[in-house]
Amino acid sequence: MPKKTTTPLPFTEAVRKAVRAIPRGEVRSYAQVALYAGKPGAARGVGRELKTLQNVPWWRVIRADRTLAPAVAHEQARRLEAEGVRVKRQGDHFRVQP
């Protein structure tokens, strides 16, 4: 019997699936989400997709250096802390603690 091939998900749906798979209280980098979505190296694309996707835990996606993007840092830190993630604030900069 021949192998059944599946069509890869469009990038948007792949990002949605990868972000929804991040467990509560954990984070992934944009690059990790891109890898899980089947597009290694498309970290910026993940950021663009997250701006348009609804009903996904976008706050669980952070920069590779564990900092939060300034435009959403306050809200993101609040949501992460509500899930038990430690976030350190230094002035207007936020960093997720290991």
Rank of each mutant, 00 (worst) to 15 (best):
A71M: 05
A37M: 03
P2G: 12
R86L: 13
R89Y: 14
R89T: 12
R16C: 01
W58D: 04
W58N: 01
Y36S: 03
T5L: 15
Y30V: 00
L80N: 03
Y30P: 00
A77L: 07
R28A: 12
V96D: 00
A34S: 11
R63P: 00
E81L: 09
L68A: 09
V85Q: 09
E81Q: 14
P40W: 06
R60S: 10
L9R: 13
P70Y: 07
G41Y: 14
F11N: 01
V72D: 10
A73G: 09
A37C: 06
R44W: 13
Y30C: 01
R89A: 14
W59K: 00
L80M: 08
D92T: 15
D92W: 12
V72N: 09
H74F: 07
D65I: 06
R86G: 00
R86M: 06
A69N: 10
R79K: 15
H74D: 15
G45S: 08
G91K: 08
R48S: 06
R60D: 09
A21E: 14
R79H: 08
A21D: 13
P23N: 12
R86Y: 02
V72F: 14
V46I: 07
F11C: 02
Q90K: 12
W59A: 05
V85H: 07
T12L: 11
Y36N: 02
A42G: 01
A18R: 00
A18M: 03
R24I: 07
L35R: 08
T52L: 13
Q90N: 15
T12C: 06
A77K: 04
S29Y: 09
T7H: 14
Q76N: 08
V27R: 03
E83F: 05
P10H: 12
V27S: 02
A69L: 10
L35Q: 14
